[in-house]
Design a protein around this nucleic acid. Structure first.
Lengths: 262, 262
DNA sequence: CGTTGTCTTGATTATATTCAATCTACGTGG
DNA sequence: CCACGTAGATTGAATATAATCAAGACAACG
């Protein structure tokens, strides 16, 4: 593919005011941005060459200049403690954003690595900020995205602090199920692109425990797993385990009080 | 005190361009805001009547209209699961902000309760957003504040996922030590305003474990605790336990690339 | 077809939880 | 000022849960 050369992507917006590439950033509110705005946003989008499995998008300490959105594939982000141990802080699937945790420090506090061949969009934060000032709906959407990340982290804190291993896995499986479903994929059959170790690390468990959990879940008939391929067979039981379902109130476009001048 | 009636506080800015009340929100960059801006920010600040211990500032599900900063006292925020169990998501000391996790949903995803008699500033988010568009440094600072919260949550995730009980307590003690020190208070003698249960809940431990930990730490000569009064006596040992010290890179004013038009 | 890394499995151990029983501090009312 | 009640904190003993250690199976890949 010849276009993966970091050149600027100047794309005209679609006909209905919907986003093209910028939709990957979840930055477009259906009613918030008109064609002109979409065009201005797309102009600052850039494509990178695809990442191969294991490629590092950014390292801990790297200067923060851009935020990223996953176009295809998937990545994990993780911090590295002084002793060298990893802590996976998130998995990022197509349509999801990463890098916003770097705004505060001005440098990336974590590392991002491709779990498989992945295609990434990047958006220079400096220009995004400027544009956000010009487009109220964009500013708000940016704030909402960050707020959502905080909200999700709090859910994760709850899972790690109050839930046992089984419950954590159930929560995680349903979480992925919802994320796949939102992309129009099956909510019950999907492929988890990360290793069992990454999963267990994310959930604060030992890899062996993860293995035993999958076995137990399979024995209960709750799911079928063959390597990375997962089939959820008893959503009700998983939801019962997970407690209040982890339905995440994703980007709702209806805001009672639009921040724009009206 | 007669001024606790929710009236608007119209305060003139100090002489050096430093913030007055708005400094509570950590929204002012020393070099970023001049007097005129400070004045505009202070104008939208409001004072509430003080909260008594146990008073709820906002409940889960409450419509999100304002963000808050602690002027004096302290609060805890916590989510409530469907089964009614609490999960403490944070403690908020003077000069610290809360409520930003509500931007995404448009409603507060957690509840905030005063741990002691507390005085609160509130700032209508709608107006804050507008002002942020007008003042680039403010917009950036707002984004940085949220980013910092994400960053801190990730540290907490690491603590819950990878650290044992002792290490978690050491991390927490040093965290508070730094927060008190930043306010000009002693880094080694302070009063933890929350109950042991709140602490243990926050750290994902049973209250009994927390009790045993304090006893063990005291036996090691690492600290002295009498009720809520804590004296740290061996910072080196605590730091060794905590691993890389949890020094949080708080609001550094030096940003290589100011987002303003220059 | 072997090599490598990941995953799985079993046995054992460590860690923190749970349950139950005091103990203490503190606020209330006599 | 003291007795009482209550909520929180502490302590001990038993238990549960997941981690660790150590092999072995499996899959991907050259």
């Amino acid at each position: 593919m010849a276009q993966w050369q970091g050149e600027r992507v100047v794309q005209l917006a679609g006909s209905r005011g919907a986003c093209s590439d910028c939709s990957l950033f979840n930055l477009c509110l259906p009613k918030g941005l008109d064609n002109e705005h979409v065009q201005r946003l797309d102009v600052i989008l850039q494509r990178q060459r695809p990442l191969a499995r294991g490629d590092v998008l950014y390292r801990e300490g790297d200067e923060f200049r851009t935020v990223y959105a996953v176009r295809a594939g998937s990545l994990k982000t993780y911090t590295i403690s002084r002793e060298g141990e990893e802590q996976v802080t998130g998995f990022h699937m197509p349509g999801e954003m990463l890098g916003l945790d770097a705004v505060s420090l001005g440098a990336h506090p974590c590392e991002a690595k491709a779990l498989e061949t992945s295609s990434i969009c990047e958006l220079p934060f400096h220009e995004l900020e400027e544009l956000a000032r010009a487009i109220p709906a964009l500013q708000r959407q940016l704030l909402r995205l960050m707020s959502k990340e905080i909200f999700q982290d709090h859910e994760m804190l709850h899972a790690l602090a109050r839930r046992n291993a089984e419950e954590r896995l159930a929560i995680l499986l349903l979480n992925f199920s919802h994320r796949f479903a939102r992309r129009g994929l099956s909510a019950t059959r999907f492929r988890l692109p990360m290793s069992r170790s990454d999963l267990s690390n994310y959930l604060g468990l030992a890899p062996e425990t993860m293995s035993r959990l999958f076995k137990r879940f399979q024995g209960q008939g709750w799911l079928h797993s063959r390597g990375k391929e997962i089939t959820l067979k008893d959503m009700a039981s998983l939801e019962r385990l997970a407690g209040h379902c982890q339905e995440r109130p994703c980007d709702r476009p209806d805001l009672s009080r639009p921040s724009g001048g009206g």
